[in-house]
């Protein structure tokens, strides 16, 4: 039996991709099982999945602590301790990235690391970052655990032919970095210089600056605060209640586009403040300014500005100074 843990973000299709693998395994005459981790799933928030594939019966129904393989749909997640946690000696990593093995800080026990620019492929083919079907192509190439034809047929049935193409592209482009030695093939990003790939690379860089936030209850969080529970006097938590500061998600890391205000056009009407769902527009010395600490980049302010003084700019363009501004994520 192979135990595979998947990491992604809400909206990237972790669950559907895993279900298709199970479908392909069953269609191919073997056994498959997938358990999603039900946290608070929202667009952009981290998502886990536990996938098991076997020739024989799969009886256990638990989370996976020591995976044989990791499938990582978003390389900004490698900053979370939970992502690489427990990988078996020689375990395989399949990751959506334009980086190298060294840049991804993979753990020392890792075996082959398979890297594919699934975001680039999906943006090129669909105009959106839905990397799951491309990752399926990489998965089957890297593992051979399900039959390629069966899997690709299932992809086409569920998502349509464009997705089969994404899987096919990833199957061809995915590149293995063994534990010691040379990459089997240069990463796609270094070879191709197409617009989509470039943009994707820039975005990856942008996303990378935002610190990934761990879902509460994940092993990562436990690891960060091993004694958090014991420090509190017993009496205090007879009833489930908060007592240790505030729960704050790093929602700035969700942002793909950021609102930028042109003060030459702004007439200080305040509508951007009034309409911001996150309260990221604040009034400072009689002037409205945008704070990027928690702004999710929804674009309501830009859309509603009567003077067109706010534009939505790719977050990646601000990568250099973003680190200094992103102060969120006190998990």
């Amino acid at each position: 039996m192979k135990e595979i843990r998947l990491h992604g973000r809400g909206g990237q299709g972790v669950v559907k991709a895993s279900q298709i693998i199970v479908k392909a395994a069953v269609a191919g005459g073997s056994k498959g099982q997938f358990i999603p981790f039900f946290g608070v799933e929202r667009k952009g928030s981290p998502v886990f999945g536990y996938l098991r594939l076997s020739d024989g019966e799969i009886r256990r129904k638990t989370q996976i602590y020591e995976p044989d393989m990791l499938v990582i749909m978003d390389d900004s997640l490698v900053g979370m301790e939970a992502t690489y946690s427990g990988l078996k000696e020689g375990g395989t990593i399949i990751i959506n990235s334009v980086k190298t093995r060294e840049e991804l800080n993979v753990p020392p026990q890792a075996g082959d690391v398979w890297i594919v620019d699934a975001t680039g492929i999906s943006e090129e083919l669909f105009g959106r970052n839905i990397p799951n079907t491309a990752m399926l192509g990489a998965f089957v190439k890297a593992t051979g655990l399900v039959e390629k034809d069966v899997l690709f047929e299932a992809i086409g049935e569920t998502f349509g032919e464009a997705n089969t193409e994404a899987a096919e592209r990833a199957f061809e482009e995915v590149c293995a970095y063994p534990a010691d030695g040379q990459a089997s093939k240069k990463p796609a990003a270094e070879e191709a210089g197409g617009q989509a790939v470039k943009k994707s690379a820039a975005e990856e860089a942008g996303r990378q600056t935002a610190q990934a936030s761990a879902p509460a209850g994940s092993s990562a969080e436990k690891a960060e605060k091993p004694d958090g529970q014991e420090e509190k006097p017993k009496r205090k938590h007879i009833t489930p209640k908060g007592g240790e500061g505030m729960y704050i998600l790093d929602t700035a890391s969700w942002r793909v586009f950021r609102p930028v205000m042109d003060k030459d056009k702004c007439v200080e009407c305040g509508l951007c403040m009034a309409y911001c769902p996150v309260n990221s527009v604040v009034s400072k010395e009689d002037s409205y300014v945008i704070s990027y600490d928690y702004c999710k980049g929804c674009g309501l302010c830009a859309k509603e500005c009567p003077r067109g003084a706010i534009s939505m700019e790719p977050e990646a363009d601000f990568a250099a100074d973003a680190g200094a501004e992103l102060t969120g994520g006190e998990m």
Partner: peptide
Amino acid sequence: HAALDPKDPFSLDPMTPGPLL
């Protein structure tokens, strides 16, 4: 031990994961 009061604010019954539950 659990009295809701703006003078001593806290969340009563936050989402609680299995091990803590």
